[in-house]
Design a protein around this nucleic acid. Structure first.
Length: 351
DNA sequence: TCACCTATCACATTTGAAGGGG
DNA sequence: ACCCCTTCAAATGTGATAGGTG
């Protein structure tokens, strides 16, 4: 058992272990308490959490430890201003399933790996007076998540592709109440919108976009229209047939590509997309077309993308789309079946 | 052997804290 | 004490690639 970065010198290891056993692992109950009444806890940036929750929040876990985003911040009221409290967090499994991301949604893929003994992250200001906790936002932004089962830094250890519920605990740091004993006064609260799935790389592109849009550190990945137009204008254009014998140039044009969305086309049905409408493909989603299948689109491409037949690109069945393509419609080579995944060209634009 | 899925790493970019100078 | 500037560690998602599994 270990604490997080905020481990306290005044908080003995044995005390924390007592607490660990005391807090239990029930992620379902929103609130439970013992010996503490009237506390209220409000999640900061609820709107942001709700946005993530709507598309199933993912949190990156790395060997070195990764912070949560959105970060876990709360506002607390109802504490005794003079009494001292310890605020801490833990993260417990929501269920006993392992998950996978398929068909643009999360689904159960098997049984969960054995749960790791939960670690606690004690807020660095602990123990603090009720007044201290109530007069400002309590932020757990320094909490880090890791998948390293031998992590020596005290980060919270999670399993990838498993679902978790963060929990906040408020513990009265009062010697008289027998801190760390079964009499310890505590209050526990879980916010359902903070449930997340731990991943080593993002699965759902919607989550990636939300992280980029809202996390200041990911600002470098935000799209910039002026920059995009400049880059498009600077992009080399080479006719498709010059690289692929007998094949017409390209199609088109207004394709904006986004991952993780299904892309299908029926026999003899043109695949079209409207101006500025994203044409989306799921990773490894098969795209099959019958012989002489027309593949049409409106002019004026905003995002170049590449269709590749295998991971990491292919030189055989790449179908690339460039802006200002002169040919309005693409016909696949006779008898050829195209399947694979849509990926970004290395020089494509971030969006 | 192969396809698929997941993990890891280096990279470019950005933030923000720390420290020095005026 | 204050402000401004510079430096640098930390944080971020990307994309290529490695590794595991069936």
């Amino acid at each position: 058992m270990a604490c997080g970065e905020g481990e306290l010198s005044s908080l003995a290891k044995g005390d924390v272990e007592h607490l660990r056993g005391h807090l239990g692992d029930d992620p379902v109950s929103l609130t439970s308490h013992q010996g503490i009444e009237g506390i209220q806890v409000f999640l900061h940036e609820t709107d942001l959490w709700t946005k993530f929750h709507a598309v199933t929040t993912e949190m990156i876990i790395t060997k070195a430890g990764r912070r949560m985003f959105p970060s876990y911040k709360v506002r607390v009221s109802g504490l005794n201003p003079r009494a001292k409290y310890i605020l801490l967090m833990d993260i417990v499994p929501v269920d006993t399933h392992r998950y996978k991301f398929a068909d643009n949604k999360w689904c159960v893929s098997g049984k969960a790996e054995a749960a790791i003994l939960g670690r606690l992250y004690v807020h660095p200001d602990s123990p603090g007076t009720g007044l201290h906790w109530m007069r400002q936002l309590v932020s757990f932004h320094k909490l880090k998540l890791t998948n390293n089962h031998l992590d020596p830094f005290g980060h919270i250890i999670l399993n990838s592709m498993h679902k978790y519920q963060p929990r906040l605990h408020i513990i009265k740091a009062d010697e008289k109440s027998g801190f760390g004993s079964s009499n310890t006064a505590f209050y526990t609260h879980s916010f359902p919108e903070t449930v997340f799935i731990a991943v080593t790389s993002y699965q759902n592109h919607a989550i990636t976009q939300l992280k980029i849009e809202n996390n200041p550190f990911a600002k470098g990945f935000r799209g910039n229209e002026d920059l995009e137009m400049h880059r498009i204008s600077q992009m080399p254009r080479f006719p498709y047939e010059q690289q692929h014998d007998g094949l017409p140039t390209c199609v088109g044009p207004t394709l904006t590509c986004e991952r993780n969305q299904p892309l299908t086309c029926e026999r003899n049905q043109p695949l079209t997309c409207e101006r500025n409408q994203p044409l989306t493909c799921e990773r490894n989603q098969a795209l099959t077309c019958e012989r002489h299948q027309p593949y049409g689109a409106e002019p004026a491409c905003l995002q170049p993308c590449m269709f590749s037949s295998s991971r990491g690109g292919s030189d055989e069945t790449d179908w690339s789309f460039y802006p200002e393509c002169p040919v309005p419609q693409q016909r696949f080579p006779p008898g050829q079946q195209i399947s694979g995944s849509l990926t970004y060209r290395p020089d494509s634009l971030d969006f």
